[in-house]
Amino acid sequence: MEFLVSAAIGLLTASGLYLILRPTTFSVVLGLTLLSYAVNALIFFGGRLGASAPPLILPGTDGHADPLPQALVLTAIVIGFGMTAYLVALALKAKGESGNDHVDAGEER
């Protein structure tokens, strides 16, 4: 399980990085989205992997899931989402102003 999760995070990060280095803003946006998925998963699993551990301490249960990474990942998701939305708007603006989707808006290809 640990191997599967870490491999998935690694794969997401690698794909994200590859896409960020592409010359069109569309792939860059996709790359950042993949990267933020990887990051969110990483934070979430920072609370350790486990099954059927309740998030609250209830009578009769032993052990509970760490609630803090869940709170952190919620914040990270919201911020990442807002930032991506702004980036998409900016990329559209750049495309409108320069007529192409190149990251160096307006640069000759």
Partner: peptide, 24 residues
Amino acid sequence: TRAGLAYVVLNLAGSALFLIALGL
């Protein structure tokens, strides 16, 4: 817009790195 695009992408990547560091 051009300067902004590069700046935003760079800082979003930086934020991702920050979150990785925090998660770890």
